[in-house]
Every structure is written in structure tokens, then in C-alpha cells.
């Protein structure tokens, strides 16, 4: 392992992130009282677990030479993944402000028309059908509470 710069395998990269994460947890726990072996405080178990994750991460880095190299990962689906995640983020902020139906309508038009490039007619039909159909079934019939926007949607 010393002869050359270790290859960036997927395990090395991911385990390094885990190591950093565990260090972060330990750092963040500093404000919480640790307690003692006989009376563990709020930081006791988290620090124990973070230390364990740290050790495991280091082991994975050490033994990761044979894993696939980072460059072998294919990210062909990243556009779709990003679009879907953005839709979810939009839903988080919109659902209680615009109401359920409007949020779903906009999200579906974006995904079906914008991302999947379907026609306007089928996209709008699908989006309207899903937004109002699911709202009717779950809110009106089954009484699952869903938010309504300021315009009553």
C-alpha cells in the first residue's frame, strides 16, 4: 500500500466520509454531559457509537484496496435523480403553503412534462387526475388530514 498513492476505491471514499461523520458526531456531543459508566448521560451512548463507527471506518479504509475504483461508478441517472429530489424539496416547502392539491399538481406537471417529456394534454390530465383524485379519496372519503392552501385548495 505504501509503494504508490492508494487508488481511490469506492470503499475508501465512502469510509472516509463515515470517519469524518463520526468525528463530527463526537465534536457535536461535546456540549452534552457524558455521565459515567454507572450513570450514562445524554452524550454517553452517542459517543460510544461514534467511536465504534470511527474504528469500523478506519478498518474499511485499510481493507478497501480490492474494491471497485471510484471511476467505475456510472452516474447516468443523475439528471433524473436531481429532478426528483428537487421535486421533493419543493413539496416540503409548498405542501403547507400552497396546499396538497396545488403542490402535487405542480410537482407532477414538472416531472411528467418537464422531465419525462410527455405531451401537455397527457401530462395535465395525469397531474389533475392524481392531485384531485388522491385528495378526494384520502381526504374526503377516508378523512386523512391533508393541508389546504389559502385559496381553499
Amino acid at each position: 500500500m505504501l509503494q504508490s498513492f492508494p487508488t481511490m476505491t469506492i470503499d475508501r471514499v465512502s469510509a472516509s466520509i463515515l470517519v469524518l461523520f463520526s468525528l463530527f458526531v463526537i465534536w457535536e456531543s461535546r456540549q452534552l454531559p457524558l455521565g459515567s459508566f454507572r450513570q450514562p448521560g445524554p452524550a454517553y451512548v452517542p459517543i460510544l457509537l461514534a467511536a465504534l463507527l470511527l474504528i469500523l471506518g478506519v478498518f474499511i479504509i485499510l481493507m478497501a484496496g480490492r474494491a471497485r475504483s471510484l471511476s467505475s461508478l456510472r452516474w447516468s441517472e443523475w439528471r433524473h435523480a436531481l429532478a426528483i429530489l428537487l421535486t421533493c424539496v419543493f413539496a416540503v416547502f409548498a405542501i403547507e403553503r400552497l396546499g396538497y392539491r396545488l403542490t402535487v399538481l405542480l410537482a407532477l406537471v414538472f416531472l411528467v412534462k418537464g422531465v419525462e417529456k410527455r405531451g401537455w394534454v397527457s401530462s395535465l390530465t395525469f397531474a389533475f387526475g392524481m392531485a384531485f383524485g388522491s385528495f378526494y379519496l384520502f381526504y374526503t372519503v377516508l378523512r386523512v388530514p391533508l393541508p389546504q392552501g389559502p385559496l381553499g385548495f
Binding site: I84, T87, Y100, V104, A107, E116, M130, V144
Partner: peptide, 10 residues
């Protein structure tokens, strides 16, 4: 998948 996504959010 958009439909599944909607149901997940709901």
C-alpha cells in the same frame, strides 16, 4: 414513479 412519489409524500 411520479405517482409513487406523490403517494410517498402524501
Amino acid at each position: 414513479y411520479p405517482a409513487i412519489l406523490v403517494f410517498c409524500i402524501l
